[in-house]
Design a binder for these strands. Structure first.
Lengths: 340, 340
DNA sequence: GTTGGCACTCAGCCGTTATGAGTGCCAGGC
DNA sequence: GCCTGGCACTCATAACGGCTGAGTGCCAAC
């Protein structure tokens, strides 16, 4: 049904429409691309493409614009993720390298992403439960107060003070620290609770109750974590490019950006790790954002995704560039989290 | 020059224009307000008000709209801060009361403010340097590592690990903790450094160098603080009310919201504590926001302002309501910070 | 399967006209 | 001296109509 030339025509339409923001006609198409055929032939191809639902006409005497289905085909078959120039790669690396802490990494990432894609960028904070334990510190603050410090692979630091029912001897505290670290370092936080469940058994009867208490506090700290619902947003000023149809694209997006829960739905699941996920128009899980697309991917230390980041823009966006930028930033942030 | 009735006319024009968003003519003015005179008389008054620069005509055959100068007079002389109903007050109190930590307080405040005013709300995080010390904790983590924990009146917790050049005895650490707390609790952080400057003198010669080191780390923690450059933003979707002139008011505002430094300039100095500050149109310290107004005030524990919060909206905004909301939220947040 | 030709459609762009909201001014009244 | 009704005037906006040109669909010829 769709031979190579028709696909070429579709690709040309998408590229032209994305760059000009205007419906593209048969004449200008053969002028700007080397299709090797006449406008009349292109018109015939366009008629077929329209029949199949890949393109449409805003009105009778206008050119064609891609439909969601057209963009989908373009993204799936007609383009591959661009590779950035080494200069661009280096710029990304150095910009992210300067970050001083986790918060800074996230903020730099979101700015970078917004600038590279000229879209609205969203970066989810690394989830505590999905990251791994780097170190647990147990310090005595006074005879019956203990300070727990939990340091994760993503650089987050959580601390809790425990009011002990009865004092613990210094050597018991040392033993507890050693046992805790042996049990959970390198483990995911989500598994930490089960990993330490049998620790109290190894302590003297007198201390068992207190150790159980300490472990309960640790488990609670992990359970309390709501950082996975936190996101950073950048490049909102790029919304001006979305066009003047305020109510139909900008207002809903502004509203969505306020609701972090909605945003997280947009970014999608972390699971789809290695590849970049693209949701186009109606595929976006939010009805009022039918004219927007989301390009997102997971990221995290190593190649293990602990959170997602991506960009939101009009369906008529430059997918190859966005996909390349999202992919590149995600990989570099992952590297930073691994090293830092 | 401006008798009472002319001021009444100005007030009526401002109120009508704010609620209808349309230039207001002499006829509708006498219909909607009890001015007790005919449209012709109102027209004469309007001519004077225009000559004095308080109102203007978008074009010849249109009604009048207030100028920045007109709004200024309205805010200064023609209105006082509304008092909220007890029901509203209670709603604010309970909504803020539910906050679990400082971050939550800030986020709830910004949402509340956005909802009450239907504008874009901005809340600056409490500045570390302006808040006071509630408690300093000094804990030994190992023989040559010390953990410093600083808890402030705004609920912020800062911690630093100090690598000691030589070990400190437990009783010396206890003494250090006692001395530190005696010196700085209740003091502002900005003064903490000078307060502890002579502490090393009170210790034995052997420990003096190490104590100096600990104090240097504490001072550095305060100096490093950049939390005063942090702000929370909410209600951006309310920008849709700003009108359709995208480039002239929404785009610049979106850009300003991305630049926290600019935002802080907008909010203004913390100094003007007790009263609500209103900046109208050209008074706003950012040229591209000439059609925008800012209503802001300081807030903090007790009546001491440690940061600012406020709303940004079009010059044609409901000043009495905004001022009332900003004032009320600031006072309740201050109360929360005092108690919590 | 491709191409040039041609009739057809229709959004967008003036130019014109009609409407009416709102004003400024003036002469008369309290 | 201030207020008021009346009236002529201005001008943004809407409505109408004709024109233009980009772009299409179709068809006959290659």
């Amino acid at each position: 049904m769709l031979d190579d030339r028709k696909l070429d025509v579709l690709r040309a339409i998408v590229e032209d429409y994305v760059s000009t923001q205007e419906p593209v006609g048969s004449k200008v198409l053969v002028e700007r691309h080397q299709l090797g055929v006449s406008p009349a032939t292109v018109r015939n191809d366009m008629a077929v493409l329209e029949e199949e639902g890949f393109i449409t006409q805003p009105h009778t005497s206008a050119g064609r614009i891609p439909t969601d289905k057209g963009y989908r085909l373009f993204v799936d078959k007609l383009t591959s993720i661009k590779t950035l120039t080494t200069a661009e790669k280096r710029a990304i690396a150095t910009f992210l390298q300067g970050a001083v802490d986790l918060d800074d990494v996230v903020h730099r990432s979101v700015r970078l992403l917004a600038q590279l894609t000229q879209q609205v960028a969203i970066v989810q904070y690394p989830t505590l439960a999905r990251s791994t334990v780097r170190h647990v510190e147990v310090v005595s603050m006074s005879s019956n107060r203990l300070l727990l410090v939990l340091i994760t692979s993503t650089g987050r630091v959580e601390q809790r003070v425990v009011e002990l029912r009865r004092p613990l001897a210094d050597d018991v505290i040392g033993e507890l620290r050693a046992q805790l670290n042996a049990a959970v370092v390198g483990q995911r936080l989500s598994e930490a609770a089960t990993r330490v469940a049998d620790l109290p058994e190894r302590f003297h009867l007198d201390d068992k109750a207190v150790v159980t208490q300490v472990i309960a506090v640790l488990a609670q700290a992990v359970a309390d974590d709501r950082s996975d619902e936190k996101v950073a947003i950048g490049g909102t000023a790029n919304m001006v490019r979305f066009g003047e149809d305020f109510d139909h694209s900008i207002k809903p997006l502004l509203e969505a950006l306020e609701e972090h829960v909605v945003l997280l739905k947009l970014l999608g699941d972390v699971s789809s790790s290695s590849l970049v996920t693209v949701r186009i128009g109606h595929e976006v899980p939010h009805e009022s954002l039918a004219t927007t697309s989301v390009v997102a991917t997971g990221y995290g230390p190593g190649d293990r995704a602990v959170a997602t980041l991506g960009v939101v823009g009009p369906t008529r966006m430059d997918y190859p560039t966005s996909m390349a930028a999202v992919n590149a930033v995600a990989r570099y942030v992952g590297r930073i989290l691994t090293d830092g």
